[in-house]
Computed example of a mutant assay.
Amino acid sequence: MTADIAWWFLAVALILTGLAGTVLPALPGTALVLAGIVLGAWIDDFQRVGGGMLAVIAAIAVLAWVLDYAAGLLGARHAGASRQAVLGAALGTVAGLFMGLVGVLFMPLVGAAVGEYLARRDERRALHVGVATWLGVMLGMLAKVVLAFVMIGLFVVALLV
């Protein structure tokens, strides 16, 4: 019984860390949420959360991962971003990791704008591409957060039913 409590604490810690990871790119958010859910199902011997439910939750985790990456690229493509803008957004995202939450939220915009400016030397276009890329990144992050909560909701409902 005591061991089960320790395992449940670990499962909840993984899920909570995963939720943080949905907004902090340094952490694999939905993968950690999925790991916590699988651990929770294992603790319960897969009695209430079986293979079918875990497959659905895993598919949602994959969808969240794909949307996270695709959203920023779609925002950039919609604005007609250059390769340098996409590279700049990626570099801005990495640089933002070292600047806290504000850096994580805004450095992709700065990186995309700088990359686009270096490619085309047009300030107005650079700003447009930067904002479009940033909007895509933010929509991807929002989708990832929502899908992580859907994963958790399905897990909790399966445990309680």
Rank of each mutant, 00 (worst) to 15 (best):
M1I: 12
T2F: 13
A3N: 11
I5Q: 05
A6P: 01
W7T: 06
W8H: 07
F9G: 11
F9C: 12
A11F: 06
A11Q: 05
V12D: 01
V12I: 15
V12Q: 00
A13W: 01
A13Y: 02
L14F: 15
I15T: 00
I15E: 00
I15K: 01
L16K: 01
L16R: 00
A20S: 07
A20D: 00
T22E: 04
V23T: 12
P25H: 00
A26K: 06
P28D: 01
P28A: 05
G29A: 01
T30P: 10
L32N: 02
V33C: 01
V33P: 04
G36A: 05
G36C: 07
V38D: 00
G40A: 14
G40F: 09
I43C: 01
Q47W: 11
R48A: 14
G50S: 07
G50V: 09
G50M: 04
G51R: 04
A55H: 02
A58P: 03
A58F: 13
I60W: 01
A61G: 15
A61W: 07
V62M: 12
W65H: 10
V66K: 03
V66R: 03
L67C: 10
L67G: 08
D68P: 09
D68K: 07
Y69D: 04
Y69Q: 08
A70K: 05
G72I: 07
G72K: 02
L73T: 10
G75R: 03
G75A: 04
A76H: 05
A76K: 02
A76L: 12
R77H: 11
R77P: 05
H78E: 09
G80P: 11
A81C: 06
A81T: 07
A81K: 02
V86S: 09
V94A: 15
V94D: 08
A95Q: 13
M99Q: 14
G100T: 08
G100F: 12
G103Q: 07
V104T: 13
V104D: 03
L105A: 15
P108A: 06
P108Y: 03
P108G: 07
G111K: 00
G111L: 01
G111W: 01
A112C: 06
A112N: 04
A112G: 05
A112T: 03
A113Y: 08
Y117E: 01
Y117L: 10
A119Y: 04
R121N: 11
D122W: 09
D122V: 08
R124S: 13
A126S: 15
A126N: 08
L127W: 13
L127Y: 11
H128A: 14
V129T: 10
G130M: 09
G130W: 10
V131Y: 11
A132E: 06
A132D: 06
A132R: 08
V137K: 02
M138P: 09
M138W: 15
M141T: 15
A143K: 08
A143D: 04
V146C: 12
F149Q: 02
I152L: 14
I152T: 08
L154N: 03
L154S: 02
F155K: 02
V157T: 13
L159S: 14
L160N: 11
V161M: 13
